[in-house]
């Protein structure tokens, strides 16, 4: 029987075993402009991209073990865009010589019914925040500079208050498991941002 290309697709697809390599740091509000200036110079020549996102963190609590966490994000600037659902695994303990935090990562684009659907699955919203900032890219490297704000009235993203007087700076790469050379690239990129910002490997469990 004639088989069209669609049947070649695996029934269960997706990208298995992607890892996120991450370095984090922060700058005071006053230093933002000089950091953005530096990033514009270092990164790929593209239109400056800014974003305003609302993130909801959901937990599924079991009888035993750690709760299962999922992050659902939607764009406030583009309300019709799909939601972004993200699973982040536990950071790999790995060897000390690795320069970045490494954790398993699954990104899913989803329709707007996502919050209802997660509720039906048994997930409950734990906390929410709004992140506003800028995105830069250099090849596979992604730099996000954002202001994190708490949501004062649940669900109302107009009523927010900044968490601190600084901006969060994140340098990340998504790569298949085992490609540890990317952490080298990240380190040398992070070197070039000094002394404006010190990007470090931060274990979220120790914060």
């Amino acid at each position: 029987m004639e088989a069209p290309p669609v049947t070649v697709m695996p029934v269960t697809g997706g990208t298995i075993n992607m890892m996120e390599y991450l370095l984090q740091g922060s700058v005071l509000d006053q230093a933002l402009d000089s950091l953005l200036h530096r990033l514009r110079g270092l990164c790929d020549n593209m239109e400056p991209e800014s974003f305003a996102d609302h993130e909801l963190v959901y937990l599924l609590k079991g009888q035993q073990g750690n709760p299962f966490m999922l992050r659902a994000r939607r764009s406030l600037a583009h309300p019709t865009a799909p939601w972004h659902l993200r699973y982040l695994g536990q950071p790999e303990v790995g060897d000390k010589s690795r320069h970045a935090l490494v954790r398993n990562c699954v990104d899913v684009a989803a329709s707007h019914s996502l919050p209802d659907f997660l509720n039906e699955m048994g997930f409950r919203m734990d906390h929410e925040f709004v992140a506003k900032g800028h995105v830069f890219r250099k090849g596979a490297l992604k730099v996000v500079v954002s202001k994190v704000s708490r949501v004062l009235v649940p669900g109302n993203t107009d009523n927010i208050e900044p968490l601190s007087l600084s901006y969060l700076v994140e340098l990340s790469v998504l790569a298949p498991a085992g490609q540890d050379t990317v952490s080298e690239d990240m380190r040398s990129f992070a070197e070039q941002l000094k002394p404006l910002v010190h990007l470090e490997k931060i274990d979220p469990k120790r914060v």
């Binding site: 697809g13 997706g14 990208t15 899913v108 989803a110 329709s111 659907f117």
Partner: peptide
């Protein structure tokens, strides 16, 4: 409810 997602939902 119903959800439309990309194939990473399988993962």
């Amino acid at each position: 409810p119903y959800l439309t997602a990309d194939v990473n939902f399988d993962v």
